[in-house]
Amino acid sequence: MSRVEVRFAGFGGQGIGLMGRLLGEAVALGEGKNSVMTQSYGPESRGGASSADVVIDTDDIDFPKATDLDYFVVMSQEAYSKYIPKLKKGGIIFVEEDLVTLDEHADKAKKIFKIPATKIAESLGSRLYANIAMLGFLCANTDDIVSEESLLKVMKTKIKARYVEKNLVAFQKGKEHQ
């Protein structure tokens, strides 16, 4: 078994659900592995807490929810405080550095990757691209989640045609961020 658990979390409107769907589909249709994506969100369409879990496994996925996070991709302070206890000891954090201040709970992480995803997105004309910049950053710095090829393929079919080009640029910028 090689179960990997990824949680994306932030606030409604950041495209957290889309991150989960893109990753889940890229894994399940592009990588020949199994993946289950589940979402949770509050009643508000924007501003409330939002999270999306992707569980990846070469075997059957017996438990569909994430409980012991290998990767925690976090884009709001509220989501950080709420879910940091779920990060596995030795897990990895990807953080939107302008929106989240880490505390001592992050010490259990093996690695912390920081990116100003929203600023990068704003430089492209809209903060809406922040999620995809983060996805590019995640993809570039991990080797057991998903290939760039599978992710790009899904992005081209699942993102509305008129937004694809800008999102591809955002992905690239995230990928190149050091």
Partner: peptide, 9 residues
């Protein structure tokens, strides 16, 4: 609810 809302292949 779980089966209804989760995504899979």
């Amino acid at each position: 609810e779980v089966i209804g809302h989760m995504s899979e292949r």
